[in-house]
Amino acid sequence: MTMPVVSEKERKPLISLKGMIKVYGAGQATMQALRGINVDIDEGEFVAVMGPSGSGKSTCMNILGCLDTPTSGSYCFKGLNVGNLSRVYRTRLRRFYFGFVFQGYDLLSRTTALENVELPLIYRKEPSKARRAKARKALEIVGLKGWEKHTPGELSGGQQQRVAIARAIVTEPTVLFADEPTGNLDSARSREIMDLLTGLNRDKGVTIVMVTHETDMAAYAKRVVHFVDGLVSSDETCGR
């Protein structure tokens, strides 16, 4: 857990993006997905990132989660310039600070819910007993007690997404990145997932960055950032 320590006195935002640019492709076929994004996110916030498809919201989230690298611009996490970090250190950020929930759930197939949730803990070298206990607890939090032995193929979409959320929160991450977490679910299931996320944000203080294109879902967030054509078009904090 050797992360460079930053002094607590400077009240810096948890996440700070400045002039973030991401270009896909090369030569004539280049596509600018992000054209200079400036966003600050504080610890404990619940931010919804909205925008039409192709506006760069997912790209931005992937860069925030260190799943992708920007073409230029600076990204500071806890005051630490992520752009200067090596692959190994960016992996450590993911391992110890980030959790991910994707639209397609992205669980390991033919693997039980419990083993899926255990996976991040294996990489964190948790001893097997503690690992299993934590994974069971996480599944209980998302309301899947008794479903530990089921594989993704035996679970519904909503249940799979809850397993994914359990896998993301089992490590007690600082930030939870959710890319269209309700994209594949009906409205009732979506509300369950959103209640779960708001609960995590409220009770455990997990910072949540959620990409969505549904206004209903964005309404759960305290702050909504709108993307249009790779730029931030509006940034509103609602008084909920």
Partner: peptide, 19 residues
Amino acid sequence: TERTREIGIRLAIGAYELE
């Protein structure tokens, strides 16, 4: 293809390339 996606999941979850 299947394995590449699995490896993607593992990397996202915090596995080192070496692991």
